[in-house]
């Protein structure tokens, strides 16, 4: 259903303030040419195209935008950023949107993508390095796709590409502190723009 959108003055556009602050990009520079969408390898899957995501931020359509699959489907190839005639780092804007969704503990529209990132970081947090067998296993167990990619496993194992045990970083205390302090600092500096409003 298409709802009529009430356009608020820029001063009340918390979404834009947050994105501009965290990405360092000036969103009003975007003049909606669509070159980002045109070059995006995954845009064909996005519900709001990259250009429309930029527009939604300009208009402050936070709830609508946060619900989309779009920014979760960005693979950060940065083609958009490289080609933007207004020199906006659009990929950085997508990062900001993911970050916002996580800060606000929103259920991601692309739960598999979010799950992948979560497991990936969980492993880095645990071992300091990525453990591919563990990542695949965790993902398959939690994503509801228990057999995902398993057809590749025999060949991978046979070629010694998937060691069963994780490599680890020795000074794990340091790694865990990094995770802990980064999260604390980010929550602290998140500012009033974040948070879900009724």
């Amino acid at each position: 259903m298409i709802n009529t959108v009430t356009i608020l003055p820029a001063a009340k556009n918390d979404l834009r303030s947050f994105v501009e602050k965290t990405s360092g990009q000036k969103l009003l520079r975007c003049y909606q040419c669509g070159k980002c969408t045109a070059g995006c390898p995954t845009a064909y899957l996005w519900d709001l195209t990259p250009r429309q995501v930029m527009r939604a931020v300009q208009l402050g359509l936070k709830e609508e935008l946060m619900r989309t699959h779009s920014y979760w489907l960005c693979v950060f190839c940065q083609t958009c950023s490289a080609r933007c005639p207004q020199e906006i780092d659009i990929a950085a804007v997508m990062d900001s949107l993911r970050h916002l969704a996580i800060l606000e503990k929103r259920a991601p529209a692309e739960k598999e993508v979010a799950l992948f990132h979560r497991h990936f970081l969980r492993l880095v947090h645990r071992f300091g390095k990525v453990w591919e067998v563990g990542l695949g296993g965790l993902y398959n167990l939690t994503s509801g796709h228990p057999l995902a990619n398993t057809s590749l496993l025999p060949a991978m194992f046979a070629r010694g590409k998937l060691p069963l045990l994780p490599h680890t970083t020795h000074n794990m205390e340091e790694i865990r502190n990094i995770f802990k302090r980064a999260e604390e600092l980010e929550r602290k500096s998140a500012g009033p723009e974040t948070g879900r409003k009724a």
Binding site: H99, L121, V124, I178, E186
Partner: peptide
């Protein structure tokens, strides 16, 4: 990491 937390 950057997708989830810029600082991390």
């Amino acid at each position: 990491a950057h997708s989830v937390s810029p600082l991390l």
